[in-house]
Amino acid sequence: MIKMSTLLVFMWSSGYLGAELAARYSSWHMLLACRFVLAAALLVGFCVIRNRWRRSAAELEPWRLTRTGLARQVALGVVMQGMYLGAIGAAVQAGLSAGITALICSLQPLVVAAGALPILGERIGKREWGGLVVGILGVGLVVGGKLAVGDAPWWAYLLCVFGMLSLVGGTLAQRKMVAPEPVVVALAIQCTVGAVVFWALNVTLGDVIPPLTIEFGGSLLWVVALSTFGGWGAYMWVNREAGPMHVSTLLLLVPPTTMLIAWPMFGDAIGPWEIVGVVVSTVGVAVKLAGAGGTEKTPARNTEVCGPEPVERVG
């Protein structure tokens, strides 16, 4: 479990690092378009082969996708793949560092907790609310320090926050709908939607030819193999073996891990504001998780939020 948990943290961090790496060789929308085409082709192919295998096995019934299920996953794909990753990609292209992007997105479980009562009718305790406030304060310290330095325009931070909120909204909707589609099928549909969305954007902007360079090819393989399949596979395994609470806790280790890797990889300096912000956010997360020790379930335990890809509840 320790090895797979460590793998999960590093693979999820690779998503933010891959976005910053690819931004040096292509536009963010070209990277996402190519990423979704490749991921969708592999996932759809896997689903087709798996369904044919199920047909050939007498004891297994082939799984069928309903129109309602297809419409549900298309809508979720627009929000969770198009709006979320589009906003994050544009923010990174504008100069927002991988570490700051990961730190802002790490608030997803806490923001989900804030929306639990009005949307899902699930309560959280006072101590958990205290952790939420402290966690937000930590992010404010980091972002405030970066704004003072002027590393990225102010609207890049807003784009990142918008992307995070889009993923939270999509995940809460997914939680409320209790979608029955298998995870691999849901991801295949959403990646296909992402491919359509971002290739349509490429056509609109007149950017339809991917960079035919080794650097771009390497960054594309990075985000597909490490970020999509590596992070996704590790997440699913840890979630099945240890549960959603363990997964949510591990993913909150992504921001400091991303910052540490981005330091030698991109030369992103780690200043005092980042250190203070990470410490304060970590304290907030610790307080929040300590407050979740009761019997009440919270979205942070039952809803998988936190990454470039949506995840259904397992088990």
Results as ranks from 00 to 15, higher is better:
96 L>R: 09
98 A>V: 09
74 V>Y: 01
91 A>P: 12
82 G>Y: 02
85 L>A: 10
80 M>T: 03
87 A>H: 00
114 A>K: 08
61 E>H: 15
72 R>V: 09
110 L>G: 06
56 S>W: 15
103 L>C: 11
80 M>V: 01
101 T>A: 12
69 G>V: 12
106 S>T: 06
95 G>Y: 10
89 G>V: 03
108 Q>T: 10
80 M>Y: 09
65 L>M: 11
78 V>D: 10
97 S>W: 04
91 A>M: 07
105 C>T: 13
68 T>A: 12
94 A>S: 05
62 P>Y: 02
90 A>D: 14
84 Y>L: 12
104 I>Y: 08
102 A>L: 05
117 L>P: 04
104 I>L: 11
85 L>R: 07
106 S>R: 03
95 G>T: 04
65 L>S: 08
64 R>Q: 15
116 A>N: 04
101 T>L: 01
60 L>K: 05
72 R>M: 11
70 L>Q: 05
76 L>Y: 09
72 R>E: 10
100 I>Q: 12
115 G>D: 07
79 V>S: 05
85 L>H: 13
54 R>F: 14
118 P>A: 03
92 V>R: 09
54 R>V: 07
113 A>G: 01
95 G>L: 07
64 R>T: 15
58 A>P: 13
55 R>D: 15
65 L>Y: 13
107 L>Y: 03
113 A>Y: 01
79 V>L: 14
111 V>L: 07
70 L>K: 11
59 E>G: 14
85 L>N: 06
57 A>Y: 11
85 L>W: 01
56 S>G: 12
103 L>V: 14
111 V>E: 00
97 S>I: 00
55 R>A: 15
112 V>S: 09
82 G>D: 10
70 L>P: 07
